[in-house]
Write a protein that binds this DNA or RNA. Sequence first.
RNA 1: GGGCGAUUAGCUCAGCUGGCGAGAGCGUCCGGUUUACACCCGGAAGGUCGGAGGUUCGAGUCCUCCAUCGCCCACCA
Length: 907
Amino acid sequence: MTATTPEANDDGARVPRAMPATYEPADVEERIYREWEQAGHFRPSGGERPFTIVMPPPNLTGELHMGHALTVAVEDILVRWHRMRGDDTLWLPGVDHAAIAVNTLVERELAAEGLSRHDLGRERFLERVWEFVNRSRSRISVQHRRLGASADWERERFTMDEGPRRAVRQTFVTLYRDGLIYRGERIINWCPDCQTALSDLEVEHADEAGSFWHIRYPLADDAGAATDEHLVIATTRPETIPADTAVAVNPEDPRYAHLIGRSVVVPAGGRLVPIVGDEAVSLEAGSGALKVTPGHDPVDFEIGERHGLPVLSILTPDGHLNEEAGEYAGLERFAARDRVVADLQARNLLERIEPYTHAVGHCQRSGTIVEPIVSEQWFMRVAPLARPALDAVHEGRIRFVPPRFTRTYEHWMENIRDWTISRQIWWGHRIPVWYCDDCDAVTVAVEDPNRCGGCGGAAIRQDEDTLDTWFSSALWPHSTLGWPDPDAPDLPRFYPTQVMETGYDIIFFWVARMVMLSLYNMRGEVPFDTVYLHGLVRAEDGTKMSKSHGNVVDPLSVIDRYGTDALRYTVVASSSPGNDQRISDQRLEAGRNLANKLWNASRYVLSMVEDGDELALPAPPAGADPALPVEDRWILSRCERLVETADELLGKLELAEALRQLRDFFWEEFADWYIELAKVRLREGDRTPLPVLVHVLDRLLRLFHPFMPFVTEEIWQRLVERRPDPEAAPMLIVARYPEPDPAASWHDAAAERELAAAQDFVRAIRNIRAEKHVEAGRWVAAYVVGAEALETARALAPAIEQLARVRPLHVVATADEAPSDGVVTTVLPVGRVVLPLGGLVDAEAERARLGAQIERLAGEIARLEGKLANEQFRTRAPAEVVAKEEERLATARQQRAGFEGSLAELG
RNA sequence: GGGCGAUUAGCUCAGCUGGCGAGAGCGUCCGGUUUACACCCGGAAGGUCGGAGGUUCGAGUCCUCCAUCGCCCACCA
């Protein structure tokens, strides 16, 4: 609690800690974070409404990406906001095991030692992985702390821990029993580099320039010998020719229909295969005849099934051709392609080569070109799960922000295909299935069995494969809360969670699957009600950040340079949901500058406070207290409106807009105007602005805190040394967030109007000074002619003098009372300002200036007159719009008359 | 082949259900050691809101078409 206890000197008097002139995040952040953590403020407080966020798994590779930093920032903002509102907030940090990525990294480490995982064997390999993972995990939690994540670290969840592992197994078993998980031989995507099966989602298609080889397939005669006739077949993958088991043509195709039933000689390998007719063959594409390679092409696989064709597999797991490929056996797949082409050419079977650009599937992880191969894998039948997942969105039980992603989600769900869930890697949740050496039974169980569920024999072996990482990720919202433990206390309290925050690139991988499997496991209860999707964070040049481009901006180095608050500000203020943003030093500087400005404005306010100052703000009467100076009533009114705006925007998850509003109020109204106005009084020994300064500062710190937690906490703790929190909150993180006052007691429209008038006067004078190059240090006399704003101008005269650097300031009621010789005049809607600048004024120039103003106003008047003369406008536009235009017209006319008067006086 | 997004000041972007005399930050220009802050203060310049139609009293905002850029989905060889 040292932070809330001011240092005492020998007399026991309070000695406020010094505040350096520049805010230094590095001196503050780590200490503040420890204070929060030690005080236990990250744990649920037991408030009435639960608010839950489960932190998305960061990248276990140990690198922190900007996208994840944004996720953490947004979630932390929401968590802090809810916590300050008294909600029972639970934020569980978690790590998923990122199976393929980790596997690859560890294998790479091994390769550097000249080893492969097979040299180590499963057990020793997994030991290596755990070493790696533990290193990464500690790095990850440090990273999150530095981002300011106010999560309950003591309850960190890792999907490979016991609890989540039970959840994975339980889900697998239930799905299996419900017939939604099955094992089968299908054509799947295979990455020869990662040497595992991949789901469709993990394959990224990219257009690549390649070739279209047009190849002659000789027709065979009845005896099976090649004839001189041939069929031309086009392919982009000649290396698969040895696996051809048929040629297919469209039965409607007049060119080829008569050939159905005959055979061709496969030009590589020489096997004799039939010509079949199949509707799937396009009449337009290629040459119209298709080579059928069921072992290495998904379309062909289906054709093969329809015609009972044999399936030939000619690829080894690492992408070489196997003995089925005959003379090409042992060649790497692309070397084989070249060889096949060369052979065909030599035998005059290559008709032509056409340049061709087509989509090629790449492994998301390794970038290697994936191969479709036939393999025995585990699959999840997702169509039955998709139905309730669609309903949940249709019925509005889950809402997307921004809503346009609803369609993306629906489209995917409606066209969903079975999910390949088994992976041939070792790190991951092992498939809870055991096979028996003595019988055909498979045992599927949550607990490791010791005998076969079929024959009871002890000779059982567990399936070697592991599950797709996204399988366990899909359980995240409930598995982290303790499911399937029936006594898990968090589950009934904190499930469903409220907001799921993530990048839109991950809707299918994660969001959709969380919805499906959570609904399934949680008896139809949705995992979260809102999916908030942020855009991608791009590099300064607009390209995607990637290591190969070398344009990755590391959040930690940004924090080192600018501070966490600056990073959070930048990344949140410039992000609207679903839209990408670019990050640059310039933007980060803006964030740092704001933190510094907060620091300095606070420094000023706090430096003004002395022992014995009255800091309590009188409670507002039903209306704002007319006894208070107008600027006090103004800022209090504006501040109340800010609270209302922030409340509304945060409720709508419009974080960026809320932050902009906070910034604008703080900088432009509080710092630039109110503090400057207050200085005038304080210099004269009037202490009455202090309660207002302290009050507004206090509200601002609270409002800003979720966004910029460190600088606000550091300041606030110094603030409460001077004026304790009314609710005795020990730290800002658990102080009360400002909420709108239902009575709107501080609203004061009159004060807002009056102060706006004073601002107009000041700006007009400053404008004239700048335009006429009056030296900034020089004090000149000025006249303010105010009709309705007269009283305000009088009351604020000392402030206007100070802010506009005019002295003496004459506040007069009519223009006659101001001089007209050697003056510069500006007519405002609220009155006019007259600056007698004598020798500085060139009468000719002033005439021109006034003339230009008159002309500008004349244009506006004409426009408004035209609009108001339009009967259609008067009848169809809402009355208040018409009234507004009429008022504008009146004001413009009045202003013009004022300028014309000044012009006439000039002669 | 389908779908989505972007196009607003020199740059990066806000502008929610149509009322906008279109905003911000950075940059530019002019002027400032006013004892919180030069990571600052004051002032200014700068946009026919990608193009063409349409709906409307009124369009940056809604509709149609087009152009450019980007993304996602898709088994067409």
